[in-house]
Write a protein that binds this DNA or RNA. Structure first.
Lengths: 383, 383
DNA sequence: GTGAAAGCGCTAACAT
DNA sequence: ATGTTAGCGCTTTCAC
């Protein structure tokens, strides 16, 4: 079955070394020799064995990316961007699911693919600081999202609390007073959900409102059905107690928001007239919803680019010079105002995607240097 | 850096062979010895080098999956299902983008990852039969979608023409007569788009209508923005010629359909009253749209399951017995009727996802045995 | 039950 | 400019 380089060399009547050089495009070869080897390659249908190459070189050119579930739009878009960027660096992405499970996150970060991938990009959901500190794997690691981690690894994450506050502030500025939160953790803490909930709480408090737990709906998962169910429950609960329904909803992500909107419609509530809705992630889906979704837009392509860049840099560290210090990068986020909070006020024809926030890490912070905070800009977006 | 098994053996005072056996959980080892080796493993932080293992065994446990773009919801959901299934078989998925480009599809199918992955799952968009026939790679290949291919490879694809006809028939049965098609290829042929367009044409012809090219809108890409742009163009064209706008739209996929719906809304047309819309793929997005989307639902999880199963079977073929014959499997598809064609007629509370069509490949067809045709069932689905 | 040695396919020293 | 040799880390005959 396997045609090896040895076979090629034999057939071409040259040594292994020469065949290897030809295949690797080394210069300094007599054209005739090169020709002969190339012909042998063709005739034999030789394909280099990458595994062998990798063993030899100690590098595989593979990057593992571990996300909860690539079927979730945000992670699909993120993974897509990572795959594209990685390809430009000649790297291939090995995609793993953690399902958001603590155990699987732990397994992945402790090198499930030991020595198979050169590095790991991980979107942690439940992983704790101490798990990362006790990590039993040498491979470079870049963390994506999940709020603060005081760990010696590169970490790229927007400021979830600030972003959530921006969203809630926007709703408050529209005169909304009963602002619900959809998508709190219902079991063991989900870092991101907790941070965004905290932002909601803080901003309400800052506005002089007492955050009411009656307006917080926890969800099992992160999908549209979860948002629909949570919103339905919340409405029923409020009504059964004779309390007014919320006049605004901040959802932990776009899919929860869209599910919630579906529930609102089923209850005869109009968006945004009766209830204004803000999501999180700026997935493309929200931009084209019948009532387009106001949302927090992290700079996803910058996040993907930075993740790959950092990882590749660390992978190709020469081992001699002082190792690159772990950085904590806080990409900017944008509030994109669309119809779900302000109705159809635009021309209805503007480009669906706001100009990408021109983000470049100003000066990569050093380990634990904290966030590079930046005022979240506000964009106006309609389809 | 690298702690090898040799180091472990040395430290434990045993031979390489013994250390290897312990690590691989072989029985017949003196408990004391095992203990000693395990301790050395812990102390040294040994992690087996999978690359070396792979070189040795000739297998990597990796599967390449190549799709146009994982950020597209259908492929995200498909990839998610493949990753899950693969994990159950102890396989890891290496995700590649083809961008739907002919060249990249060719590269991938000719073994871009030669000997790195044990097999390949490919969703071809432009690849031709002759390209596959001339394939210069031995690794097992499973094709996903893309209509008919008379090639000696496993191929899992629903009957696109029949599915499209079902969709159009549904629209016709509602009394719609000016049924537009959104998402035709605008350049070199896209196999799937062409097949679905053919289905549209055939069904219209069967209904006694002359398919008018004025009702066909080609698109550059496959996204929501493409659907929006195409629909806008189509409406403008019809109006500028004083022709009536379509009263129905069949779009090549859900995202095109949702973009088209957005365009319709911008033109003050109601769905489904003025224009009924049918999509294709049954991505979750369509199930939760404000006007939920009637669509053709391929049995995606069955497709993913079959793809992995076939591939793994072929990968683990013993090499001795007669090789498994290539099969052509045609999973069933379902027309899921939702609000975009019949309005809000349900309770508005039914579960969003129709009961999964119970699909099992009845009797795997042998090479070129043609489709296992089956009547597409019709499901009713509202959120 | 354990040890010694060969070899998976490739590349990089070191010769010539 | 080309050939010879060693060895990446692992598993597996083959002996003992």
């Amino acid at each position: 079955m396997g045609v090896s380089l040895k076979d090629v060399a034999l057939r071409a009547g040259v040594s292994l070394r020469t065949a290897s050089k030809v295949v690797n495009g080394s210069p300094h070869l007599r054209p005739a020799t090169r020709e002969r080897v190339l012909r042998a390659v063709d005739e034999l249908g030789y394909r280099p064995n990458l595994t062998a190459r990798h063993l030899r070189s100690g590098r595989t050119g593979l990057i593992t990316m571990a996300v909860p579930d690539v079927a979730r739009p945000y992670f699909a878009e993120l993974a897509g961007a990572v795959i594209e960027t990685a390809a430009r660096y000649g790297r291939t992405v090995l995609l793993d699911h953690t399902g958001g499970s603590y155990e699987r996150e732990l397994t992945v970060c402790n090198g499930a693919r030991s020595h198979l991938a050169d590095g790991l990009i991980l979107s942690p959901v439940r992983l704790a600081e101490e798990d990362l500190r006790a990590r039993a794997d040498q491979a470079p690691l870049v963390l994506l999202g999940g709020g603060e981690y005081r760990v010696p690894y590169d970490h790229i994450a927007i400021d979830d609390v600030a972003a959530a506050r921006t969203a809630v502030r926007h709703l408050a500025s529209l005169g909304r007073r009963r602002i619900a939160f959809v998508g709190a953790s219902d079991d063991r803490a989900r870092r991101e959900a907790d941070l965004r909930l905290r932002g909601w709480r803080e901003e309400l408090a800052a506005a002089g409102t007492v955050p009411s737990t009656a307006l917080v709906a926890a969800t099992d998962g992160r999908g549209r059905q979860d948002g629909l169910a949570a919103m339905t429950r919340l409405l029923a609960r409020q009504r059964s107690r004779g309390r007014p329904v919320p006049d605004a909803v901040f959802a932990c992500n776009d899919q929860l928001a869209l599910g919630a909107m579906r529930a609102l419609a089923q209850h005869g509530l109009r968006v945004p007239e009766d209830v204004a809705v803000v999501g999180f992630d700026d997935t493309e889906e929200g931009r084209y919803a019948a009532v387009s979704l106001t949302t927090i837009a992290p700079d996803t392509s910058a996040i993907a680019r930075l993740a790959v860049t950092r990882l590749v840099e660390r992978i190709s560290w020469d081992g001699a010079s002082p190792p690159p210090a772990p950085v904590r990068i806080t990409p900017g986020h944008t509030l994109v105002v669309r119809e779900s909070t302000t109705g159809r006020s635009g021309t209805g024809r503007a480009p669906p995607r706001p100009a990408a926030p021109a983000f470049e890490p100003a000066a990569p912070a050093h380990a634990f240097a904290g966030c590079q905070s930046r005022q979240p800009p506000v964009a106006r977006g309609t389809v």
